[in-house]
Design a protein around this nucleic acid. Structure first.
Lengths: 248, 248
DNA sequence: CGGTGGGTTGAATAGTTTCAACAGCAGTGG
DNA sequence: CCACTGCTGTTGAAACTATTCAACCCACCG
């Protein structure tokens, strides 16, 4: 019964300048608050906790997750700088939020936050707008999860994380673990690993580091995410990456 | 970039009395509007249409869906009486809404709707609250979709549709087609059918009519939805329903 | 009465999961 | 300094489950 996730910014970039430019009024609420540092792995709040605080992510990445009774974990979103965490109009948080990396947060008491929203029409509008983005993101995830194949899911995920970066050799930062990705995409860690390996062996991506995936052939990746068969889409290079594709 | 789905009412029943009791201010906006009748199968609006109208469902059921480029369909929610359709703070609807059954709607121009929200703090609060329910519903679907087995998905879906009805022999109304259910759960129509048959043969549900599923053994259904194995959960009766379970 | 849409069932296939082993790396402590 | 341990990620083989493609049933309708 709460709402604390805001993980897409469809029209604006998440870099510091643009974010503040677009959300000046929103961020201004938090700007006077000291940035609190949270170590990676720490929990910000638990599902079911009384929703007393609202946070703004200043730095780092967090994961929002729900635990199932049988111990399985469902990650309902990743949070990035500029996102609001804990915006709620019910009394309890509906999911747990944990720091994926070292994180910097600005805290704001919820009742003050709501007071500000009531007072400032512009701010209110921005919050509404953010909630819309949130809904949109939630539905994007729904679409992602109902995709049939592991190939589609992972490539869509990479594009989501690449977040409007265009051009060749886009470096996608993946601070989360493979387990996080698996729990986000509704598949097993092994399948995530195997699918990544497959993309690498087709020369579509490279994995210079555990937490970095470089997109080498963006259009091919896109067509796989669209549902085209991986083998068909990556026709140019047969099985390995000996021949670098012309467009890369 | 819109928000028009509101498909759960966690704390209140959807029957006419209670809904109006809890949402008097909200419904009062629409109550003066004439109820428009829409035939089943008709489209209310398309994904990408300019979001000019807000609707309140008075009667019937609708489906909200997104179409993928390759023709696949993802149903992101079902809408029931009391739900708002088309509440948006962006300019376009993000999904298509179609009538599952014959539907009665009350229409309200969006700009007036937003004006009312700005003017009435109480109304605003209710809308926020509704959006929270919506978010919650969206996430419930996320959790549903990341469930591993077809058994879990379908049983969870039945419990969702049964919507807090308790007791023995709960009749769940399913006005949508099997294809709709499949597109909502991210599986094929055949698997939906087979899973239903399996539940019937285990005496857990009965299907007196194409659009009605009667829950015979609620606790068993719940435990399957929780992730327990169907065979294990339905131990009392081995393969058929010759012996009615004690608790049914 | 044939056609159509919705639904069920069967058999083969294809894909993911499961279980298990192992590799790489960081941190720890002798 | 190096073995030891724990964590994350990769890979392999077998088991399993959903999908695919097909046939078929049924109710409804012109």
């Amino acid at each position: 019964m709460s709402m604390q996730l805001s993980s897409v910014q469809p029209t604006k970039r998440i870099s510091t300048h643009d974010a503040t430019a677009c959300a000046a009024n929103l961020s201004s609420l938090f700007v006077d608050q000291p940035a609190e540092s949270v170590a990676s792995g720490r929990t910000i709040f638990w599902e079911g906790d009384k929703a007393t605080q609202v946070f703004e992510v200043a730095e780092g990445m967090l994961r929002a997750l729900r635990l199932l009774r049988d111990g399985r974990r469902v990650i309902v979103g990743f949070l990035k700088p500029g996102d609001l965490v804990g915006v709620s109009f019910k009394d309890k948080y509906i999911y747990t939020v944990e720091a994926v990396t070292k994180v910097a947060l600005r805290r704001f008491p919820r009742h003050l936050f709501e007071g500000e929203i009531a007072r400032q029409p512009k701010l209110r509008e921005m919050i509404f707008s953010k909630l819309c983005d949130e809904m949109s993101a939630a539905q994007d995830q729904t679409v992602l999860l109902s995709r049939r194949s592991a190939d589609e899911k992972l490539t869509s995920f990479l594009l989501l994380m690449a977040n409007r970066q265009i051009g060749q050799h886009v470096e996608v930062n993946l601070p989360m673990t493979r387990q996080d990705i698996a729990d986000y995409l509704g598949m097993t860690i092994e399948t995530v690993s195997r699918t990544t390996t497959k993309l690498v062996s087709h020369g579509i991506v490279a994995v210079p580091d555990r937490h970095i995936i470089t997109i080498l052939r963006m259009e091919t990746l896109r067509s796989i995410a669209r549902g085209e068969d991986l083998e068909a889409a990556s026709a140019p290079t047969t099985t390995n990456k000996r021949r670098l594709p012309a467009n890369a």
